[in-house]
Design a protein around this nucleic acid. Structure first.
Length: 276
DNA sequence: AGCCAGGTTGCGG
DNA sequence: CCGCAACATGGC
């Protein structure tokens, strides 16, 4: 396992991995190290100042890509920093970056995320990986491939605790396998086209589609609107109708409104509901 | 016991 | 097109 260091003057590893956008990282407060599974590799990461020490078999460039270190955060802050709330969120969570997750894992993960809380989502994904993924080492497993999910039975999926989401996972996996669907190719479409495509999968509506677009398909204008974001929109911006949220977000925060979403989401949840 | 969680689907009107 | 119940599960 190779070890190397990455320096970035505007990156906060902790906020990035703790904000709720990704479900397969764990923090060890004893040695201040994050351990995560990305693709088929285990990554250990620890930050001291501007330096992040990585222990992993994947390349430095792949890590930089995963953590979106190519995003010009200062430029993004300038564009989205339009009011006191987002300003406070940026101040508190400076250095939080969106991730470039694997599109398939992101899609299935956010299908699991419907009407569940974050500890529950983590548990479902852990169970799915242990049951249908491949063992990397010890208790670490890859996220199941679409094929593995497609070949699982409903009862096997339900045994992973996914409940009513089991047929959604199964149907989506089968469609991907049967049509040899290339999710990553959606990056080449514009936002609306890619979103329409995603919504054709079972279990994928407005919110899940926006999550996949934002967290894995480079669409930073996606603005996932879950129950928390709806609350934020009502209490901070007086946006009462859910269908008005996206339009407002794009008007107010601009084309990087996805970043604003993530900062506000994390800020609001930690401010008003400390139990994460 | 009842409510809530990073919602979506499929129904009846 | 609209509104609305149903959907598993676990924590509080």
């Amino acid at each position: 396992m190779a070890m190397y260091k990455i320096t970035c003057n505007l990156f906060n590893l902790y906020h990035t991995l703790n904000c709720g956008q990704v479900f397969r990282w764990e923090y060890n407060s004893q040695n201040k190290t994050w351990t995560g599974i990305v693709g088929s590799t285990i990554i250990k990461a620890r930050q001291e100042g501007n330096t992040v020490t990585i222990n992993s078999t994947i390349s430095k460039n792949a890590i930089k890509n995963y953590f979106r270190l190519d995003d010009d955060l200062n430029k993004i802050y300038k564009q989205i920093n339009k009011d006191q709330y987002i300003s406070a969120a940026i101040k508190q969570y400076r250095g939080l970056r969106l991730l470039r997750q694997d599109p398939y894992e992101c899609l299935f993960s956010y299908i699991c995320a419907t009407r569940a809380n974050i500890p529950q989502i983590k548990k479902m994904i852990q169970n799915l990986s242990k049951t249908l993924g491949e063992k990397i080492e010890n208790d670490f497993y890859t996220f199941p491939t679409p094929r593995a999910l497609s070949e699982a039975g409903l009862t096997q999926l339900k045994a992973c605790g996914v409940g009513f989401r089991a047929p959604y996972l199964l149907q989506t996996a089968k469609k991907i396998v049967n049509t040899d669907y290339n999710l990553a190719a959606l990056k080449k479409l514009d936002y609306e086209e890619a979103k329409a495509e995603l919504k054709r999968f079972k279990g994928v509506g407005e919110k899940v589609a926006d999550c996949v677009l934002l967290f894995s398909l480079n669409k930073l204008e996606a603005f996932p609107t879950d129950i928390w974001v709806k609350r934020i929109m009502k209490s901070y911006y007086n946006i009462k109708k859910d269908e008005d949220v996206r339009k407002f977000a794009l008007m107010h925060f601009g084309r990087y409104c996805g970043y604003a979403q993530e900062y506000l989401y994390h800020y609001y949840r930690t401010k008003y509901h400390s139990t994460y």
